[in-house]
């Protein structure tokens, strides 16, 4: 299931630790990169690859919030609403995004383009409120800046 390149990466990662179990988190990251989310099949595959019980892999995947347990849109919009962001308008931003995208928190647009998630502190309190889209931080976000960002991402037809 993994590409040749990813299988090589797994071997490299295993060398960093004395047990193959320790490679689990990094290997799950590789899996999420390749498949976009971590399905039951992927969990079984990773379990076999590292010689771990499926139940262990399932326990780990479901413990960590960043592993996607269901498919997410091309752009995963993660809005921090913790205190520093809340004090500077995070909930208003979240409400705005719900309206703009026509979905509620936790949902994905039918075209699989956007997923909207509310997240805990992203460590960007000095430039709050912050929104993370996939791997990138967008800081000091206002409704105007969000509108521009969404429109820019929407134009991409790929």
């Amino acid at each position: 299931m993994f590409t040749e390149e990813n299988l090589k990466k797994v071997e490299e990662i295993k060398k960093r630790y004395p047990t193959s179990q320790a490679a689990l988190l990094p290997v799950l990251w590789i899996a999420q990169e390749q498949f976009g989310w971590i399905s039951e099949d992927v969990m079984r595959y990773v379990a076999e690859l590292l010689g771990l019980p499926y139940s262990h892999v399932y326990g780990v995947v479901t413990f960590y919030t960043m592993y996607n347990k269901k498919p997410v849109g091309k752009y995963h919009i993660q809005v921090c609403t913790n205190v520093s962001c809340m004090l500077r308008g995070a909930y208003e931003n979240l409400e705005y995004l719900e309206k703009k995208l026509g979905i509620k928190v936790g949902q994905t647009t039918p075209d699989m383009k956007f997923t909207l998630t509310e997240v805990e502190c992203l460590g960007s309190c000095g430039t709050a409120p912050v929104v993370q889209v996939n791997d990138d931080y967008y800081e000091d976000m206002s409704k105007e800046k969000l509108e521009k960002l969404i429109e820019q991402l929407s134009r991409d037809r790929k």
């Binding site: 179990q21 988190l25 326990g59 960590y64 960043m66 502190c121």
Partner: peptide, 25 residues
């Protein structure tokens, strides 16, 4: 570098070690 996966508790040193070992934090 060992990348976490979104669990505040893994900042606690013993949970962090469990996490490096490939377990729940």
């Amino acid at each position: 570098i060992h990348r976490g996966a979104g669990a505040y508790i893994c900042g606690e040193e013993s949970a962090l070690m469990e996490s490096i070992e490939g377990k729940r934090g």
